[in-house]
């Protein structure tokens, strides 16, 4: 036991997140997904500063043009520049995806933590989750879009109203998986010694949850966050594709695809660009989530 005579560690301690990052870098698909996702996000948010054509400006004389230097993606039936529209649409789609994901995450974690932490709330809250899981989500989303569109438009203006509607509709219908995962983890954590220790020195429930429980359930929450972005983007595009999403003069990727379907025979590229953008974003986010799940799982880490 004399080897242990030097009690001072020579290296500074590594934080958990450093290990996670090391593992994450090993996953080639995840790195590629992350790079691609940040490229797409940068392109849709910063791109309009470089390519400053107004996406809603019509120029009838220049309609239905093919790709050229002035319009790399061509123009649509009203002469609007498709590259600018793709960037504007992407900004909307990605914003909707991220905001809806945040909403569903907050709802899901809230319900999950409450259900896992307080035994009295567990039964009712989980029954509620089961009920929501039994609802037919896509039809209900469509119904919600149809019913609340006009009141919200009147209250918040056309674009803001529909944004709030889509984000809250997607958020309200997609929090259940997160809640279930978080509840399971909280149930296991609650029985651990450090929670008992914290409670024995008189930590209040609120502090216990924010200080000890939440940081420990962060990894499943992060994984469902990435997957949540993917589903939110797909759902928003599906709504726009069915003609129940954003109004026509307010481009999103789903709306551009929907508009392009009418000109499928003559200009198939009008469908392919937005479709490709949606698919690539979702694919990159899915790979990102896959890598994150592996990196955050301590059983896999270090292999």
């Amino acid at each position: 036991m004399t080897e242990l005579s030097q009690p001072q560690p020579t290296k500074p301690p590594r934080s958990q997140w450093y290990d996670v990052w090391d593992q994450f870098r090993q996953h080639k698909g995840a790195m590629m997904g992350a790079t691609l996702f940040f490229l797409i996000v940068a392109a849709v948010y910063l791109g309009p500063y470089l390519w400053d054509i107004d996406p809603t400006k019509t120029a009838i004389r220049e309609r239905n043009q093919g790709p050229s230097l002035a319009h790399p993606f061509g123009t649509d039936q009203l002469g609007r520049d498709l590259l600018a529209r793709m960037m504007a649409g992407g900004a909307t789609s990605v914003s909707v995806g991220i905001t809806a994901m945040m909403l569903s995450l907050i709802l899901g974690s809230f319900v999950g933590v409450l259900a896992g932490f307080f035994r009295k709330l567990d039964g009712p809250l989980m029954r509620l989750t089961d009920l929501f899981l039994a609802l037919p989500l896509l039809p209900l989303l469509l119904v919600m879009m149809l019913l609340f569109r006009e009141p919200l438009n009147a209250a918040f203006g056309l674009e803001r109203g529909i944004f709030i509607l889509i984000v809250s509709a997607i958020g309200i219908t997609s929090w259940m998986p997160t809640a279930r995962i978080v509840r399971g983890d909280v149930l296991a954590l609650k029985e651990r010694e450090f929670v008992l220790a914290a409670r024995s020195i008189g930590t209040t429930n609120t502090r216990l949850i924010t200080r000890h429980i939440l940081p420990n359930v962060l990894s499943p929450i992060m994984v469902s966050a990435t997957l949540g972005i993917a589903t939110a983007i797909i759902t928003e595009s599906a709504l726009s594709f069915l003609g129940l999403g954003f109004p026509p003069d307010f481009p999103t990727w789903g709306r551009l695809l929907f508009d392009g379907v009418d000109y499928l025979q003559q200009f198939p590229e009008r469908v392919i660009w937005p479709g490709l953008a949606i698919s690539l974003t979702v694919l990159s986010v899915n790979y990102l989530g896959d890598g994150l799940r592996d990196a955050l799982d301590p059983r896999i880490r270090g292999r």
């Binding site: 789903g254 379907v261 479709g275 979702v282 694919l283």
Partner: peptide, 18 residues
């Protein structure tokens, strides 16, 4: 299967039509 997850039916459908 990742591609299958990521490509929404309203794009894959339109793509096969094209």
């Amino acid at each position: 299967s990742m591609v299958g997850f990521s490509v929404p039916p309203f794009f894959s459908g339109v793509l096969v039509i094209v």
